[in-house]
Design a protein around this nucleic acid. Structure first.
Length: 120
DNA sequence: CCTATGACTGGTC
DNA sequence: TGACCAGCCATAG
């Protein structure tokens, strides 16, 4: 039993596909906070960071999933297949008040999401 | 069914 | 602080 299952204990049934479970968790990240791929994976359970990244890549524009709030464990926006980080992502985060240092890194200790509420 | 391909991570150097 | 690497495993073709 993990945090994700706790969240669905009260009558809500977990969605079937892995991606849907991942998106569900990503939707819980509050505005102005960020989460890492590994963090999402561990909350979802039975999932690895790579799958989370893959799920983010599959998000369609116009989706209600706040994909931009998911960054890597180094506190930076991940480099995409075409060789550069998504510029939009940083802009969206800055709009929410997230600060980047000179190294294009955010302070995970300050703005990393604490995770879903434990012990429902 | 088999192979290639990643929006990753933690360890080592 | 990097750079490099093996392990990772769902998808696409």
């Amino acid at each position: 039993m993990n945090d994700y299952h706790n969240l669905h204990r009260m009558g809500n049934r977990p969605p079937r596909s892995l991606y849907k479970r991942i998106y569900d968790v990503v939707r819980m990240i509050p505005t102005g906070r960020v989460a890492t791929y590994g963090q999402i994976a561990s909350i979802v359970g039975k999932c690895t960071p790579r799958q989370v990244g893959y799920a983010m890549a599959a998000v369609r524009s116009g989706s209600d999933v706040p994909w931009h709030r998911v960054i890597n464990s180094k506190g930076k926006i991940s480099v995409r297949a075409y060789g550069a980080p998504c510029a939009i992502q940083r802009r969206l985060l800055e709009t929410e008040g997230v600060k980047f240092n000179a190294n294009s890194r955010v302070d995970l200790n300050k703005i990393k999401w604490a995770g879903p509420i434990k012990e429902i």
